[in-house]
Design a protein around this nucleic acid. Structure first.
Length: 469
RNA sequence: GGCGGGGUAGCCAAGUGGUAAGGUCGCGGUCUGCAAAACCGCUAUUCGCGGGUUCGAUUCCCGCCCCCGCCUCCA
């Protein structure tokens, strides 16, 4: 049985979807006003792990991730760049999908955009319904707001007492038109800053509030009730609270059955921010020579509900750990291909990896099992106790594990001609026992970024840094 | 002030009412022409602090300290 921590109940709950084996999953996606940063990707990697593990357990996932392509920041960005909203967001969308691929994050089934007519129609429909039910009203500023006092459950997800909310600088002081400071915008009336961005509605020209898009897309694509809804902890309030209010206000049904939230990524123990200079996009990290899978490992290896401190020391640890896995696989493949009977007393795979993940995605525990398995099988291979059959069983086990982790090295790339030449020269020097020349060539290869290792089958040359996944 | 997450070896980190997984780093060894990788061994008498419950607590209870996040459109 899979157990997940539900933010709503603040408890671990047994996971049982509404319509097994189908699972509907909604994950809050990026606002495409800039390049996504590694903190964003931590959340997406967590969601990817969740999806992959559920699939490994036989569930069929229908996952939706929204793309917010209209909001204050996208509008401002387009205005400053003097391009249309769509032209402004398009490159960021494209970059986002490229980054997903670099990190081996599975594609969602749908990526609805907030500006797509289909969803705008649905948003307007929902807002109308909310007004009809007295859960929303149009204020003097022409914007439409959700009336939180009429929705008894408001605040339950975040466990917030609305009376005790402390106003911060983020509350705009000019929002006096609202009945209650906590009322949030469903439809924002057009103003000059919006330029040519706007859609007609029963309440005049304007654009959707941020929260309503998710309610509209989720209910359109996944139905009135969805199994899992994920996001970063910062989305709990107000975003997800608002989604509940809007969706349940319209449908009258329980909107989400399991709320899962991922803790923040810290950099050097502090929140990532541009002013502190600790703000990284994925490209910033890959530009330093780290591959996508190395970043994936670094962001994956800590439990999703614990804050993860990103450091380059951590990147080095990740690189080493992956190398260990790579070497092990190579060895296992050799053993499995050798045809040697062996003594056949080596260790045999178990389901511990999966059952550990069942416990609220305990990835650290699961990785511990992977590395223990690596040590045991390596030891067995050293002792010649793992036969072809045993090695094949472990490779099969790895296939299943890797379906969830997605950390296997891609096929080794062909050596560039000049590297090939150096390697051949070194091979010849070695045959002649010319160690001085051999070492010199090894240093040369190292200097060019290639790792040289001599094995009983001759030298092995690998590129360990700076390549794509 | 309210609501959360967390304090376990140099660093990252799992975990249980019965005496500390795993990764990384460092040191020693096997292997190697030398390396590298792999493997073996060593590295927390101890799990923020102080009480309590218990035969026994890192794990349960109480109090305290510290760090981080959220508190109205940041994953």
């Amino acid at each position: 049985m899979i157990r997940l921590f539900n933010t709503y109940s603040r408890q671990l709950e047994d996971f049982a979807p509404l319509d097994p084996p189908n699972v509907s999953m909604y994950t809050c996606g990026p606002t495409v006003y800039s390049q996504a940063h590694i903190g964003n990707f931590r959340a997406y990697i967590f969601e990817d792990l969740l999806q992959r593990h559920l699939e490994a357990r036989g569930f069929k996932i229908h996952r939706v991730m929204n793309i917010t392509d209209v909001d204050d920041k996208t509008i401002r960005g387009a205005r400053e760049a003097k391009v249309s909203l769509n032209n402004f967001t398009e490159p960021f969308k494209r970059g986002f999908f490229e980054d997903l691929e670099t990190l081996r994050i599975k594609r969602a089934d749908e990526y609805p955009g907030a500006t797509e007519p289909r969803y705008l129609t649905r948003m307007i429909e929902m807002i109308s319904e909310l007004i009809k039910r007295d859960l929303a009203y149009q204020a003097d500023d022409k914007s439409v707001y959700f009336r939180i006092n009429k929705f008894p459950g408001y605040g339950k997800l975040a466990h917030l007492n609305l009376e005790e909310l402390r106003p911060t600088g983020r509350v705009r002081s000019d929002e006096y038109e609202k009945e209650n400071i906590g009322d949030f915008a469903l439809w924002k009336a057009w103003d000059e800053a919006d330029g040519d961005v706007g859609w007609d509605s029963p309440w005049g020209r304007g654009r959707p509030g941020w929260h309503i898009e998710c309610s509209a897309m989720a209910t359109t694509l996944l139905g009135d009730q969805i199994d899992i809804h994920c996001g970063g902890v910062d989305n709990i309030f107000p975003h997800h609270e608002a989604e509940i209010a809007q969706s349940e206000g319209v449908t009258g049904k329980k909107f989400v059955r399991y709320w899962l939230h991922c803790a923040h990524l810290l950099v050097d123990n502090q929140k990532m921010s541009k002013s502190l200079g600790n703000f990284y996009t994925l490209r910033d990290v890959t530009a330093k020579g780290y591959s996508g899978r190395e970043v994936r490992y670094a962001l994956l290896r800590v439990h999703y509900r614990a804050q993860l401190n990103f450091t380059f020391e951590g990147m080095e640890e990740s690189r080493q750990a992956l190398t260990r896995i790579d070497e092990w696989l190579q060895r296992l493949r050799q053993t499995s291909a050798s045809g040697a009977p062996g003594k056949g007393v080596g260790p045999v795979p178990t389901n511990d990896f999966q059952s550990t993940l069942d416990d609220d995605l305990n990835i650290s525990g699961a990785l511990g099992i992977l590395f223990e398995s690596i040590r045991e099988t390596n030891r067995a291979m050293d002792a010649n106790e793992l036969d072809t059959y045993g090695a094949k069983a472990w490779l099969q086990w790895w296939e299943e594990v890797n379906q969830v982790l997605a950390l296997e090295a891609t096929q080794t790339m062909a050596l560039p001609p000049e590297i090939e030449t150096l390697a051949e020269a070194r091979g010849i020097a070695r045959l002649a026992n010319d160690w001085q020349k051999s070492d010199e060539l090894r240093r040369e290869l190292n200097a060019r970024g290639w790792e040289v290792r001599d094995t009983k089958d001759g030298q092995k040359i690998t590129r360990r840094a700076g390549i794509k996944p």
